[in-house]
Amino acid sequence: MNLLSMFRRGSAPVARERLQILLAHERETRHQPDLLGVLREEILAVIARHVVFDPDKVQITMDRGSTVSTLAVDIEIPNRRRASGAASQQLSRLALSASTATTRSQWTNGLV
């Protein structure tokens, strides 16, 4: 919308559009107050069924960008087959990462 059309139509349509985008986003996050906490528990439960790891050596981060958000899960797994002592313990790393596109157009479509 250019300046001329804003002037002609008044600023209410801009207010309306900004609110719709913002509230669609806020409502989404409101119902998942601790999304990261829930994800952490569920992901760790799945991985714990297959490998042994120290829950303290897990890093889960979510990076929210303007168009793409990234979820990164970094789990340190002790390699037990070769472990003969604490000093020589080998480590493997399991890293997962996922991206979610959260574009403006999707928010708007989701609401209307």
């Binding site: 139509r9 008044g10 209410a12 207010a15």
Partner: peptide, 13 residues
């Protein structure tokens, strides 16, 4: 005049 959110706008949101 489109200077203020209308009743319909607020109701819809």
């Amino acid at each position: 005049r489109g200077e203020m959110l209308s009743i319909d706008d607020v109701l819809e949101i």
